[in-house]
Each structure stands twice: as C-alpha cells, then as structure tokens.
Nucleic acid binder design. Structure first.
Length: 571
RNA sequence: GGGCCUGUAGCUCAACUGGUUAGAGCAGAGCGCUCAUAACGCUUUGGUUGGGGGUUCGAGUCCCUCCGGGCCUACCA
C-alpha cells in the first residue's frame, strides 16, 4: 500500500468561497483522498487558509477588526463550511501559524545561502492617506490610451492595454480614493527563478502524464518572452511572515514581510507540522511526508488547484524547494481545473452572482452539491452551473437511480419478509451475471479514480447503481414471490446486499448518504471490496436492518424557479 | 498583440498513439412492469463531429484557413 500526500490549493481568507472555488480544488481532492483511504493507502490530506496579503488587511479594516482577529474568525467560518461539505482534511491549517513562519524564514535563508536571493531597489507608489504602499491594481486613474476613468494601475479593463501605474492620469488610491500619492524607493528580495529555468524546464518535461492544462501553463511561463522571470518575494506590509534569514535578522529588510505567494505553498508543509503538533507527535511524524531523507521517498504527492494557481505550484514553489538544496518532497502530480461558470457568466462576489458555500448548505445537504459538482467538474474545459441541469442530475441520478433502488428493495423486503435479510432459495446465473457486470464496471471505476478522472468516475459509479435496477426488473421478486417465495427470498437477499456495496463505492462522492445506507443496513464494514462474491454475501440471512428515510428528496420545479431568481444577482 | 484550451445529437459529455456502420446519460417517442421517491426496465427518433481546403488506403482525431466560446499574459491571491 502506498503513501499519498494530497494538498488542496489554500482558500484565501478574504470571504466565503463559491462553488467554483470548491470544485476547483478542495472537493476533488477530498474525493480522491477518500478513495485512497478506502482502498487501503495511507493518506495525508492537507489544506489551510491563506491569510496574508493586502486583501486580508483591507477586509479586516472594513469590519473594524484587527487583521489577526479577522483571520482567526474567518478561519473558523471556512473550517466550519469545510466540515459542512464533509471535506476530510487530516488538518486544516493556517498560513499564519508559527510553523509556517519558521519554515518560510528557514527556506528563504537557505535560498539566500545558495545565492538565489537578490536585493532589488525599486520605486513604488505610496499612499499617504492610507499609510501603505499600493499594489499596482490598487491604484486607479484615467487610462492614457483610451480615456477610461477607472483604469487600474496594472491594466485598463476597458481597452485591455497593460499599464504602469505611473502612466495613469489623475491617479488615486483604489482603497480610499485619495490622490495624495507619491513614489517612494523601497528595497525587496527577489527569488532568482531565472537561474533555475533549465532545471525547472527539465523537470516539467519529464511530467508527461500531467494534464495538458498544467504543463502548458508551466511552459508558457518558462519560455514566454525572455523566459521565467525573477519574482519579488517580499512586501511592505504589517501582516505576514516577517522577513528573516533563518532565525537571524535580515539587514535592510526590517518591517517587511514575505509575499503571500512565497509563504502560502510552504504552508502545505507547515500545516502538516501543525497536524503533528495537534496530535502530540514529534517532528519525525510530519517529516516522513516531506523529507526524502526522513522517509518521504515512497510518498506520492498530488496537488489539486484551479488553473490560476498553476504557475505558483509548477514553478515558484518547486523553485523554492529545489533551490533550498535540502531534500524536500517535490510534487508528483499536479491536477488542475478550469473554471465553473454560473448560468452564462462568471461567479461574482461583488454582484452577488452565483452560489456560495454557506448558501449552498442552507439550501440542500452537501451530498447533492458534491455529486453535481464532481460529476460536472471542469476537467477539460470550463463548465457551467444551471439550476435546470442541477435539478435534472440530482433528481435522476441520486433520487431515482440510487435512492429509489434502496427504497424499493428495503420496502419490498419489509412487506414480505420483515426487516430481516430473508433465508432460503439459491442464487443462479442471474446473480452471477450481476457480479460479472459489476466486476467490469468496478475496475473501470477504480481506474478512473486512480487517474483522477472524476467525471468519468461518476459515470461508472452511476452505471453500477443502474445494474441493481436492471437486476430487480429482470428477477421480478414481486412476481416470483407468488409461486416460489424461497426464490424471491434469495433475490431479495442478493439485492439487499447490493446496498452496503453501493454505500462503500459511493462514499468518495456522497459520504452522508453512504453512512445512512450503511446504518440502515446495520453494517459497519467500510472496506473496499476485493472479491465481489464475498462482498455481496456480507449480510447473511437473519441479519436485521431498517428501512431508511428517503435518501434524496427531489428538487421541485417550483424550488428550481425560486432559486434561479434568488441567485440571479443584481443587474 | 502573443500564447494556450475549446467548438461532437435539443442539453451535458465519451471516442488510447488517425482504423470497422461516431457512443452514453438527460430530454422526446413507443412498449413493459407495478416492489419503489408517478420510481424502474426494454426499444427507439436525433449528428455531412462550427465552415472551407489539404495530407492519407483511411480524419472527430494531423496540417492550413475562416468563424464562435474561454483562459492566461507575471504587483489580487
């Protein structure tokens, strides 16, 4: 059995994430983690909130909280929503943790020791009214090219021309509107990624099985124009990891912090250390996942993220890891996703367009969302949420095909034999045929899960559910019962045994329903089946069960229409 | 501007390195069943694979071109 390290891109602390964010990293990572655990592998599934950077400071200022308080509160909110969606992290950490501080400073020190850090003096816009340096896109003004009066300092949204903030006419702070701006000299550390271009390029070239989306983005950044550029890894902010060279002060860098994109991926390691701390374990417990000299040699490391995060995970973070000269574990597989759109447009926080995690859970249980999102995951191209499609998928797949199967089997048994697995009769070719069919489908399902082809996996899983309905239709226990009750008993016994099997197989996608099914069947065997004939005789004659509540309630046309209107946003 | 992805039945998607009459699910039509959440099963109608040209014995798949959709383009994260 292998050891699998799984990380989901860190959700930014600034606000509740929408379903597009969820399906782009955390949710598929969870399905994969669940499958790997069930199939007997040792899994470490890590996520954390990404808490540094300008947006966090501004969001805190808006609510009047100290930024540390704001982050602590929002971490709690996001952690609760993660639980609501049944995301099975082994640890949900915080990039502001002491562990991350130490690791970030340590790695920066190593990079400096290896000559991969450069001090660069540059000019940046400072807002006196806001008391802070402004990132380019926090400066607004009139576009010198087209005259648009709300152009941002990095690019004009109207004419798409790339800008330098000093080119803007009548520049003002996007935060306060203040025009009291000045250009100041400030010194920053740069990670010399350019020095590692060849090494990174060779490494990327070896990843022939990665999604095209992943490698094409990496190569674009590696070779576009002058090639991979150096990147500033410090900022003039109060909130963040203070710049230090290991545990020593860094002369000239007083009052500065590391750039959020430098420390965020390091938190994958930090959160694993936090996990060890939380469980009272020593450093060796987390190092065996991350240090190839401490046992991480045989770890397979898989990352999940939306496509916007790919450059950081395929280039910047590996540059940090490799450049340290220390034996840290590099990622083995980068699974990236396109975007999920909402009903013809993008999800939009500002316009209140689309569905956010908290709202989703208020409307329906998490299984409904998990199933739809994962069966429509934007693996090959952007995909789109519509209420119509959501209603159709949920009602048909979950309520009709799976839910109704459980219902018809358990209720028929109760009416003829009571809530006990009936005795008598023999299995024949029909049952053998079902086993053969499921064996084939199960293999395909396992292959899809192993390859992290989640859409295809849901198709296979659904096909396995359908086999149950086909079997019942052909076997007709309700008709056989009239002439041969013993044979009917055998059919029902076999059909009842399909329920815990379906529960176990479905668990990566719909964990709550899986629990309900197992509880109803009075079973606690969650082991992945290796021999279906054995698995399908797990419930012996005489085993008691209870008819479960309706597993999935259908979404009515009225509800669908109501939701459509509610989430359409303003405009 | 540059780069990448994408366009397959009304809808959502398949189709390994080019290889027999392009497949599923949903929706539609017909039939069957009546255990079940008016659920299930069977059969079936839908495609000159965005348009055009080319390479090849053979193209959804490769090349060129045109049209449409999307993303990225490095100081948001």
């Amino acid at each position: 059995m292998a050891r699998i390290l799984i990380t989901s891109a860190l959700p930014y602390i600034n606000g509740i994430k929408h379903l597009g964010n969820l399906v782009g990293s955390q949710l598929p990572a969870d399905a994969y983690a669940r499958f790997m655990r069930q199939t007997g592998h040792e899994v470490m599934f890590i996520c954390a909130t990404d808490e540094h950077g300008t947006p966090a400071e501004l969001a805190a200022a808006k609510t009047g909280e100290a930024v540390a308080d704001y982050c602590a509160r929002m971490h709690g909110v996001q952690a609760e929503l993660a639980r609501g969606f049944r995301l099975s992290f082994d640890h949900y950490g915080r990039s502001s943790s002491a562990r991350n501080h130490t690791l970030t400073q340590h790695l920066a020190g190593k990079l400096a020791d290896n000559g991969l850090i450069e001090e660069v003096s540059e000019k940046q816009v400072y807002s006196l009214a806001d008391g802070r340096f402004l990132p380019d896109r926090y400066i607004e003004g009139t576009c010198p090219n087209c005259g648009y009066d709300r152009a941002r300092g990095d690019q004009c949204e109207n004419c798409t021309k790339q800008l330098d903030p000093t080119e803007l006419l009548n520049p003002r702070s996007a935060i306060s509107g203040s025009t009291d701006l000045e250009v100041r000299e400030t010194k920053h550390l740069y990670l010399k990624q350019s020095a590692m271009r060849d090494r990174l390029g060779e490494w990327i070239d070896r990843q022939t099985d990665w999604p095209i989306l992943t490698t094409s983005i990496a190569k674009k950044w590696l070779y576009d124009g002058d090639g991979l550029r150096d990147r500033g890894i410090t900022r003039d902010l109060d909130w963040g990891v203070p710049v230090k060279r290991g545990d020593k002060d860094w002369p000239g860098m007083e009052g500065k912090v590391f750039y959020v994109w430098f420390d965020a991926p390091i938190e994958y390691i930090g959160a694993t250390a936090e996990w060890a701390d939380a469980h009272g374990l020593g450093d060796d417990a987390w190092q065996r996942w991350w240090r190839t000299d401490m046992g991480a040699d045989d770890v397979r490391y898989v990352q999940f993220m939306g496509k916007d995060n790919v450059p950081f995970h395929t280039l910047s973070f590996p540059a940090t890891i490799m450049g340290s000269g220390e034996p840290w574990k590099l990622v083995d597989y980068v699974k990236s996703f396109n975007y999920l759109n909402y009903d013809g447009g993008q999800f939009s926080t500002s316009q209140g367009r689309g569905i956010f995690m908290d709202q989703a859970l208020d409307i329906l249980p998490s299984d409904y969302w998990r199933w739809w999102l994962l069966s429509h995951a934007p693996e090959n191209s952007d995909s789109e949420f519509t209420w119509d499609n959501f209603q159709a998928s949920v009602n048909k797949d979950l309520a009709d095909v799976l839910g109704n199967f459980v219902s018809r089997v358990t209720k028929f048994c109760r009416s003829k034999f009571g809530e006990v697995v009936p005795d008598g009769g023999e299995y024949d070719e029909a049952e053998a045929g079902v086993i053969a069919q499921i064996t084939t489908r199960l293999k395909a399902y396992e292959d899809c899960m192993t390859a992290i082809e989640l859409r295809k996996a849901t198709t296979e899983l659904r096909a396995i559910w359908v086999i149950g309905n086909e079997y019942l239709q052909a076997a007709q226990p309700w008709a056989i019962y009239k002439t041969d009750p013993a044979k009917a008993a055998a059919i029902v016994r076999f059909a009842l045994n399909l329920i815990p099997l379906y529960a176990v197989l479905s668990q990566p996608f719909i964990p709550d329903a899986a629990d309900t099914m197992l509880a109803a069947m009075n079973s606690d065997n969650r082991n992945w089946p290796t021999d279906l004939k054995v698995a399908l005789s797990a419930l012996p004659a005489g085993h008691e069960f209870s008819v479960p509540e309706v597993l999935f309630t259908k979404i009515s046309d009225e509800t669908r229409a109501e939701m459509e209107a509610r989430f359409a946003g303003q405009n």
